[in-house]
């Protein structure tokens, strides 16, 4: 199986896919606040267990995510070591490791189980200004395109004998070396966005259609909100 893209919807009929997207947004928002606000190791471990259980419910094969897991693992270990060395505190390192893992896994679960349209409809129903909601959903779609264009621009400048430098110890020099990449990339993205706005008009885009769409609220959604309420209660209780 080819690896998945974490910003793209994974088509499946799992329980997680069936949850009302507005409930998913509320869950993600509240859950993130709880993760960041709590420093109780047991509470954080409980959140991790819930997140991993949710992951099994998505029916997304872990091996399809192995590439990202490898990156995440590398980043986490590196951060953990740095924190333990600089703060001389093992528990802070562990907490950081768990918190970042839960946040990333939850966000990825959301993008993999929510269609672009569901996200747009939910945001419009949550009274987010439609221009912002539309821009956000389109930005997700354009991430891979921008990454591809950035690579091409970098290659093009390298073929002009330009050396791209990435050195943490020499930030000014690194930034300077990327100016020939950043400027053309910005111009390309700006032109693309303009063309896209024209295309949206010609394809008859109108927020009214999305305002009218209905999102079902069912038993699963009730259960999700109940679990979230329990977590909130536990957070304030302890």
């Amino acid at each position: 199986m080819s690896s998945l893209k974490i910003y793209e919807y994974y088509n499946s009929n799992s329980v997680m896919h069936k949850i009302n997207p507005i409930v998913k947004i509320i869950w993600l928002a509240v859950f993130s606040v709880l993760i960041l606000a709590s420093n109780n190791l047991y509470y954080i471990i409980a959140l991790l267990i819930i997140t991993l259980m949710a992951q099994t419910l998505t029916k997304i094969p872990i091996r399809a995510l192995k590439q990202y897991i490898a990156y995440l693992f590398f980043f986490l270990i590196l951060s953990f070591v740095l924190i333990v060395i600089t703060r001389e505190n093992f528990i802070i390192g562990i907490l950081f490791l768990l918190k970042v893992s839960i946040l990333i896994i939850s966000a990825v679960q959301f993008t993999l189980t929510t269609t672009q349209k569901e996200l747009l409809v939910s945001l419009i129903k949550l009274k987010v200004p439609y221009s912002f909601a539309f821009t956000l959903t389109i930005a997700l779609r354009f991430l891979p395109t921008i990454v591809k264009e950035a690579k091409e621009v970098m290659d093009a400048q390298r073929t002009r004998a330009h050396k791209l430098i990435f050195n943490i110890l020499k930030p000014a020099m690194s930034v300077r070396s990327y100016i020939p990449v950043i400027i053309p990339l910005f111009i390309i993205i700006f032109n693309r966005s303009f063309e896209l706005s024209l295309a949206a008009e010609t394809r008859g885009f109108t927020p009214k259609i999305y305002e009218k769409q209905k999102l079902k609220f069912g038993f699963i959604d009730f259960c999700v909100l109940l679990i979230l309420s329990c977590l909130l209660f536990l957070f304030f209780r302890f």
């Binding site: 672009q116 349209k117 395109t145 063309e195 295309a199 949206a200 010609t202 394809r203 109108t206």
Partner: peptide
């Protein structure tokens, strides 16, 4: 432009600029 979209559709030179979704 939106109302006229029922009558007339334009395919731009760069198709990449007209994609809104993932699939």
């Amino acid at each position: 432009v939106h109302e006229l979209s029922s009558d007339i559709q334009i395919m731009f030179q760069n198709p990449e600029s007209q994609f809104f979704t993932f699939n």
